[in-house]
């Protein structure tokens, strides 16, 4: 319940943050602190140095481009949930952010911290994978965009390098005819996702022209059920077509814990994948 001793630095700019990172070996960025500090209190993480990036305005906020929305890595879950731009052009991200924990956590926790921490039970990874989002990473020498699907490497591990900071997440705007839904089965204790299903369905002239289904909570990293998505293409996305497409769901190495076995998580993915697709379909109309 008490972290071990650490040094604390407050970064004054992104460059300053990267300098501080370069000059300390066991340093960690501190954003909202809602994943890192609990780990430190349980002494599961014992960073010698914390670099507080929490006041860097350059990392905050949501801005729009022609075809995309740029979300600063330090944007809070509450800001995502309330964003007019997201609600209009990418409602699934706002919907998922609103399902994270409680108002206290949503007011402090950030999208960057959420995905950098890469907790498999987090709510945002599946949505970002389904959306085909791009994660922008920056080191002192280079900017590096990474596709969301390539960002998550393993349980609590990402492709973020030791000398990098995450600056923003870029999300495509969903066009007319695209419906989306994120459904979550929450763990009754932690509130995290035991299974989170993100679905995007585009319907043109009565049939599915694009589809994407992705899950978090089920496997160590978010996974896209591409077989299901492909099976939906060209169908009318009616209940029977959805049921048929769901037969293509294959979950490799589901996680297992005392609350939900791998077998049960797979059953949840099957049920909630189907329900998410149906909900996205209804919203596409």
């Amino acid at each position: 319940m008490f972290p071990s001793a650490f040094d604390y630095h407050r970064a004054s700019s992104i460059d300053d943050a990267l300098d501080l990172l370069a000059s300390h070996s066991e340093a960690k960025f501190l954003a909202g602190g809602h994943s890192l500090i609990p780990m430190m209190k349980l002494r599961l993480a014992e960073p010698g140095v914390l670099i507080d990036i929490g006041r860097l305005d350059e990392l905050k906020g949501i801005s729009e481009d022609n075809g995309s929305i740029r979300v600063g890595s330090l944007t809070t879950h509450a800001a995502l949930a309330a964003s007019e731009a997201l609600r209009r052009d990418c409602p699934i991200l706002a919907e998922a952010a609103a399902l994270i924990a409680d108002p206290q956590v949503r007011n402090k926790g950030t999208i960057g911290g959420n995905i950098a921490h890469a907790d498999p039970a987090s709510d945002l990874p599946a949505v970002l994978v389904a959306l085909g989002a791009t994660i922008h990473l920056k080191s002192k020498s280079a900017d590096r965009p990474v596709a969301a699907a390539d960002f998550f490497v393993d349980l609590l591990a990402t492709s973020l390098a030791d000398n990098e900071i995450m600056t923003a997440i870029e999300i495509p705007k969903l066009g007319a005819g695209t419906g989306s839904a994120y459904l979550k089965v929450e763990h009754p204790a932690s509130g995290y996702a035991v299974c989170g299903a993100a679905a995007l369905i585009t319907i043109a002239n009565g049939s599915v022209s694009a589809a994407k289904l992705a899950f978090n909570g089920v496997t160590a990293i978010p996974f896209a059920a591409d077989g299901v998505s492909e099976a939906l293409l060209g169908s009318d996305a009616g209940d029977e077509a959805v049921d048929r497409a769901m037969a293509a769901l294959a979950v490799a190495d589901p996680m297992s814990d005392s609350y939900a076995s791998g077998e049960y998580r797979t059953a949840l993915a099957r049920a909630y994948g189907k329900r998410a697709i149906r909900a996205a379909r209804d919203r596409a109309a």
Partner: peptide
């Protein structure tokens, strides 16, 4: 009835000893 269980494994470890694992009812439940 619905959520709580103090579970010990065979060696005597309390495996539901934190509020991450042990579900107390909350208002929205």
């Amino acid at each position: 009835a619905l959520w709580e269980e103090a579970r010990y494994d065979e060696s005597g470890q309390l495996t539901s000893g934190t509020l991450l694992d042990y579900a107390l009812p909350r208002a929205h439940h």
